[in-house]
């Protein structure tokens, strides 16, 4: 993953980003002037106390949300200039999300969950070849393929969720406390996996409270009250 133009243009650029949630008892300032660049191939850990704005920041990076003010651009394109459909397409093709609560689709089995983004992208044909190597690399056994998420352990669910995030071969992988619901062993397995993905050229951003998890990252960002400190 060494695209020529990416070397000059950062994958993500945020300039003086504010995010305010309106609230009757006074607006909540979740992000208060964040400036940040994420280059291709980075592995970043975002740390900070609860309520400091980590998830909000990650959602903005992942084009799930728009800033109240300031600029967020992904590969040089300002997210404000993109339509909802274009942002959705970015999430589908270029970004992989991994959540603390896994967020698998309960109506679908393992294989269907993993191939879902691929089917969204290219229709049902051709996704067979995609999910097999991904599931293999993530270490999901064949006999689990037809299981529903409710029939899997937390560690297994998170690995399926990572497989789903990877199936469209995204450049950027965003994880919001991916190990929060896992025990130490399963947690470090997930981190090994993310490290491996980063070594293969993918950009990884992980939100975590845990310094041991943050230790896997190349770069650490500390947040406090909506600012980077």
């Amino acid at each position: 993953m060494n695209d020529g133009n990416g070397s000059e243009m950062p994958l993500i650029r945020m300039r003086d980003v504010r995010k305010v949630y309106p609230h009757p008892a006074g607006d909540v300032v979740a992000l208060d002037g964040v400036t940040l660049e994420i280059g291709h191939g980075d592995f970043i850990a975002i740390m900070g106390p609860s309520g400091s704005g980590k998830s909000t920041l990650l959602n903005l990076i992942g084009c799930l949300d728009l800033p109240t003010s300031g600029e967020v651009s992904i590969e040089g394109r300002n997210v404000r200039d993109l339509s909802d459909d274009e942002l959705t397409e970015l999430r589908r093709d270029c970004i992989g999300f991994v959540f603390q609560t896994f967020n698998l689709l309960p109506l679908l089995n393992v294989v269907e969950n993993v191939e879902f983004p691929c089917i969204l992208k290219e229709g049902s044909r051709g996704c067979e070849e995609r999910f097999l190597p991904v599931l293999k690399a993530i270490g999901i056994e064949r006999d689990l393929f037809s299981h529903r998420p409710s029939e899997l352990s937390g560690g297994q669910q998170q690995r399926v969720a990572i497989a789903r995030a990877l199936v469209n071969d995204p450049r950027l992988i965003l994880c919001d406390e991916p190990t929060g619901n896992l025990d130490t062993k399963a947690g470090s397995q997930v981190m090994e996996l993310l490290m491996d993905l980063n070594r293969r050229g993918r950009t990884v951003v992980v939100v975590t409270h845990d310094p041991r998890i943050a230790a896997y990252a190349k770069r650490k960002i500390e947040m406090m009250d909506g600012r980077i400190v």
Partner: peptide, 16 residues
């Protein structure tokens, strides 16, 4: 609602 959120986050359009 949660499912809709998941679907949207992994790239399902409004139309979908």
């Amino acid at each position: 609602t949660k499912e809709v959120g998941i679907l949207r986050s992994i790239g399902t359009t409004k139309r979908g």
